[in-house]
Design a binder for these strands. Structure first.
Lengths: 240, 240
DNA sequence: TGTACATCAGTGAACGCGCGTTCACTGATGTAC
DNA sequence: TGTACATCAGTGAACGCGCGTTCACTGATGTAC
């Protein structure tokens, strides 16, 4: 969250009538856009449709967004930040020593947010929107979840790992893992980090399968499956 | 593959001039549609654009497809079948006793096909296309990969599992797992099956992250990461 | 082998709708003196 | 406190484009006798 003060001031104290109206309209646009996301998906998001619902001429929205893509970008950033908030909050509420609890909190917060906001989830973790290139602004918000995961991994001792790779990691993979920045400048254990990365992918793979319908009919209620999957991952990380 | 003979006959021996022309046009439509998939994604797939590229009036395509959605369905079925073919072929080439090899073949065939056909992959494993409901025809092709996985899991002994769940599975999860049909009418071990399901989700989570850009900059070349991830999964399954 | 008729492929115009973006404009809100 | 001017919000028409689908039609391919 770069520049929290600026955001704060803008959110909290819009001075004049205009500033307040502008903030209100931006919020309305966001809300309506997200409703439309549900019905038509990201590619169907339409400036005109949003304006129509707001009772405005479509051209009016160009006072607020330079283009449709800018609107999409805002929705993406908002979604990443909401998910990031949810995960950070859940994880921060745990005892620092309770590593398993912290990971469970991360995983369940991710899944809960995704289930509560399936369209926003699809927007940021589904197929890329064709013709849309995510600008730089989306990068930082996008890393918040994995940053929390990194904090957790940093607290896991490699001594407890029950599974080891049969062969040594190839040098290329070692180099990639070593290049990942650690929280607080410590060192990651490579095996823990490797496991962490694959567990991370698995988490989102599970959520994808659940939300996008791959689990349908077989696991219509995926609560128990999800919890068991997390338990297995924690066991693989040697964390109880 | 239901009714292989019918398909065969139609593919191989279109009798008249018309039948041959029809088969050719269907193939052309498919090819061009898949090219368009790359540029505009599934939601942007357009009957008119395809007709334009074929030098036909857009109405002409309605002799071949009743609607745009039918065209989409065909692309989806084709994609599932291509992936299914790739995975089945790769797995079938392995020694039956080489369980690790069979799983590696499945995983690498999946990833290879996805990388070679990223748009088709996004079509079947990415965000659902808004407003499109997959018809019954897509169900069977969609299960081919997981069927192969099931065959492999059925050959894995639960005795070798290095990790066990700390607690017993909840009854609801046991019931869901027990309801999964086995190949050849045997019984699945629940723990193996549970691990298998989560490994399956992980496989597609990894491919998603690679193809949709989540791994970007950190793992620009994901070969080694992917291979290591598979090794970890095999270790968790107690297979060497 | 030839003729009459049915089937099919493809046309082109039309219906009715959508979209993003620009532009000259009116009228209200803010600001400087 | 009041006035003059600048800024901003929003309008509505327009540009130029796209789309799926229907329909009456022409002309070619196939089929039955």
């Amino acid at each position: 969250m770069p520049d929290p003060c600026a955001t704060h001031a803008a959110d909290q104290a819009p001075q004049g009538v205009r500033a307040r109206a502008r903030a209100q309209l931006l919020a309305d646009v966001s809300r309506i856009a997200r409703e439309h996301l549900a019905e038509s998906g990201a590619p169907g998001l339409s400036v005109r449709a949003i304006a129509r619902e707001l009772g405005l001429a479509s051209s009016a929205l160009y006072r607020y967004y330079p283009s449709r893509d800018a609107l999409l970008t805002q929705l993406i950033v908002e979604s990443y930040n909401e998910l990031g908030d949810a995960v950070e909050t859940a994880e921060a509420a745990c005892d620092r020593a309770d590593i398993a609890g912290r990971y469970r909190a991360l995983a369940h917060a991710t899944r809960s947010w995704a289930r509560a906001n399936p369209n926003e989830y699809a927007l940021i973790y589904g197929s890329p929107v064709p013709g849309y290139a995510a600008p730089q602004d989306t990068v930082d918000p996008a890393t918040r979840v994995v940053t929390v995961l990194g904090d957790i991994l940093a607290d896991i001792s490699p001594d407890g790992l029950p599974l080891r790779l049969a062969e040594q990691m190839p040098a290329s993979l070692q180099a990639q893992l070593d290049a990942i920045p650690t929280p607080l400048g410590g060192d990651f254990d490579r095996e823990v980090l490797l496991l962490g990365v694959t567990v991370w992918a698995k988490l989102f793979g599970m959520v994808n399968f659940e939300l996008f319908g791959t689990f349908n009919t077989v696991f219509d209620d995926a609560d128990a499956l999800f919890a068991a999957s997390i338990d297995l991952d924690l066991a693989a990380l040697g964390v109880t």
